[in-house]
Design a protein around this nucleic acid. Structure first.
Length: 205
DNA sequence: TAGACGATCACCT
DNA sequence: GGTGATCGTCTAG
């Protein structure tokens, strides 16, 4: 039950449609598995200023324009990796950012990975709370950009137990100054692993 | 070629 | 609760 893998059809839809449907699903890579509790959708080129694909295809975001169901890992802020799942057919750049989750397997390994970059032990609840933490817990880096997350790919997304519709909440995306009108951030209400909301604050110089 | 900034996190007060 | 760290990527000139 719930251990079936999601197929490519699942991702062949607009990001805002896929995102809430991903809540409660389990993404696994190697020994570590994470149950998703918070995601963010990113729209099509030219319509979503917050998306990496807004200005069209570049060498960096090429994976987002590829076939759906693949992993898009990017480096940001000079120190963090974030993982996305590509949506919509090849040629259209859209995806879903994995923001937070709960480690349900391989917690020891995830802890070791997190500890490598931290000076003290990490509480289990915080293992994958936040996009960069989630990427570290699963072991995703630049090398994993473009991996297939559908059968028979090395990354698997399991059916898990989809979140109940009445527990799904949506709101403005984090760290986004434009396009606030699009509530494309989705999370499971009341889940302790959901990252705290942070309104957009321009960085001082 | 140079300048600016970003889908953030950990640590300090 | 506030702030500094840190660098790849894009855009303009």
């Amino acid at each position: 039950m719930g251990e079936r893998q999601l197929t490519r059809d699942f991702f062949d839809r607009p990001g805002p449609e896929v995102a809430p449907d991903l809540l409660g699903r389990v993404i696994a890579y190697g020994p570590v598995a994470v149950r998703l509790t918070e995601v963010e959708a990113y729209g099509v080129p030219g319509q979503d200023p917050a998306s990496h694909t807004f200005r069209g295809r570049t060498a960096r975001n090429a994976v987002m324009f590829g076939p759906p169901g693949h992993l898009y890992v990017y480096f940001t802020y000079g120190m963090h990796f974030c993982a996305n799942l590509v949506c919509l057919p090849e040629g259209i750049g859209s995806g879903v950012l994995l923001r937070a989750g709960e480690v349900v397997a391989g917690a020891e390994i995830a802890t070791a990975r997190r500890a490598a970059g931290a000076s003290r032990t990490v509480p289990g609840r915080d293992l994958a709370r936040g996009p960069a933490r989630l990427a570290v817990a699963l072991g995703f880096t630049r090398e994993h950009n473009g991996l297939d997350a559908c059968p028979p790919g090395p990354v698997t997304v399991l059916e898990g137990e989809p979140a109940k519709p009445d527990l799904i909440r949506s709101g403005p995306r984090t760290g986004v100054s434009t396009g606030r009108d699009t509530p494309w951030r989705f999370w499971i209400d009341g889940d302790r692993t959901v990252s705290p909301y942070r309104p957009h604050v321009p960085r001082r110089r």
